[in-house]
């Protein structure tokens, strides 16, 4: 029991600090120590429930990362490293998702709307959402409304996230939201990006606005709580 708790804490710490594996030299104070890669493998070998590894190890670490990022105590590079460590750990859990021994909290379909090619902000959202235990389907940039609709047809249980970085391309969110709500009225939609505001989200009929990636996670988790 103590060993379980200790290894889960270590996994969480590796995510927080961006320690991917033993070979990675960063952070310096964790040099030559196991990273998320080895620790998740060991946790599985010890028989720890994969869902527990996800929830109490990986997700716990990523939650701290989100809080630190929101408080501006860490910046995009640390989030990228944390996400890399998260991915290394998640690789070991994939077979358990396939066999339903571990489950995602839900599915998010994510994309930058038509006419807009900006990618990094959306990627950050995807990383943090994945780190919060969600499956992320990233449709990329310059995504047409019909492609969002088609993606929801394939995974109707999804929440949709729309990103835009310009006031002009932000207007394309309106049509995307309208098309999605027409085809799938029950689908929750969250929007974000530099020019987007909560008032705009209300105006176009989106369900929520997130000012930052942790805000998207908060909304997604609230939809699970509703269910």
């Amino acid at each position: 029991m103590k060993e379980t708790s200790s290894i889960l804490q270590s996994i969480a710490q590796c995510i927080e600090r961006g320690k991917v594996n033993r070979a990675s030299p960063y952070p310096p104070d964790l040099r030559d120590r196991d990273g998320a890669d080895e620790l998740v493998r060991r946790a599985i070998d010890l028989g720890i429930d994969p869902q527990e590894i996800l929830t109490d190890g990986l997700m716990t670490g990523m939650k701290v990362v989100g809080e630190e990022f929101r408080a501006k105590r860490i910046f995009v590079p640390e989030v990228l490293m944390a996400a890399k460590a998260m991915t290394a750990g998640m690789e070991h859990l994939r077979p358990f998702f396939a066999s339903s021994q571990a489950t995602h909290r839900g599915v998010m379909i994510l994309g930058t709307v038509l006419g807009d090619l900006h990618d990094i902000g959306k990627r950050l959202v995807g990383m943090m959402v994945e780190g919060a235990g969600w499956e992320v389907i990233d449709l990329g940039t310059d995504v047409a409304p019909e492609d969002f609709v088609a993606a929801v047809e394939r995974r109707p249980e999804s929440v949709v996230g729309l990103s835009a970085l310009l006031t002009t391309t932000m207007m394309n969110m309106k049509e995307t939201v309208a098309r999605l709500k027409e085809a799938h009225p029950e689908t929750k939609i969250i929007i974000g990006g530099a020019p987007v505001t909560v008032a705009f989200a209300h105006e176009i009929g989106a369900d929520a606005y997130a000012p930052d990636p942790p805000g998207a996670v908060d909304f997604l988790n609230s939809t699970v709580a509703e269910i």
Binding site: G18, P25, Y26, P27, P28, K72, F75, V76, P77, E78
Partner: peptide
């Protein structure tokens, strides 16, 4: 520009 202000970036960020 990344946001570190007066604080130093972590070593791996500086290396990158």
């Amino acid at each position: 520009r990344i946001g570190y202000g007066d604080e130093s970036a972590p070593d791996n960020v500086r290396a990158a």
